[in-house]
Amino acid sequence: MATIEQTNEVGAPASRGGSPGHDPHATATGVTNLKLGMWLFLASDCLFFGAFIATYLLYRGRDTVGVGPKELFDIPFTSATSFILLMSSLTMVLALAAIQRNDIRRLRIWLLATALLGATFIAGQVFEFTEFNREGLNLTTNLFGSSFFVTTGFHGAHVTAGIIWLMSLWGLASRGRLTQKDSERVEIAGLYWHFVDVVWIVIFTVVYLVPQPGPTGS
């Protein structure tokens, strides 16, 4: 919904009596309302993922039943999808650079590329989930199953929302409704996208890479 609020000019009078020379677009902090609002949302979301990751860490190695990370994780595969997601941050930067110099054709290409890379990541996650499920891990198997699926699942939901967001920007751009002066909209979407990437780096490190105290497999 952050694509929408474009209201830092709320109530700006057509002619501001009393303070000529005062820029009606200026804010007290110098950051636009939209961007400040987005930063606050992301700060809030940090604690959202923080709480999930903390739960995962607390429950590491507590299981006595079911399959665990040692049997399931395919680090090369997940590294590849993580790399793909990381690359999408790069294309996101390029998309923003494109709209800032009013290059709408490149903007569309890079937006689409970002969304596609994100979708590839999600596809990888879906594959991973089904694979784990086939090997006997589901939400109810053990604490690892519960905390792994819910933590990464909510991250996946964030990425999916981001893809929808990027695609709607792409749709607007395709119909010529996104021009240079709307670059902030892309920038806000980019903030969100980079944030989701960074969260994945943390999840990938903490959940996949940090050595697991092994549960007894069966």
Partner: peptide, 24 residues
């Protein structure tokens, strides 16, 4: 802004435990 996400996570886990059989 900082407190609400924490309770949200706790409630999500409670909801999943109750409805989907997770074990949090």
């Amino acid at each position: 802004v900082f407190a609400m996400p924490i309770i949200t996570v706790a409630l999500i886990m409670v909801f999943f435990d109750r409805s989907y059989g997770t074990l949090f």
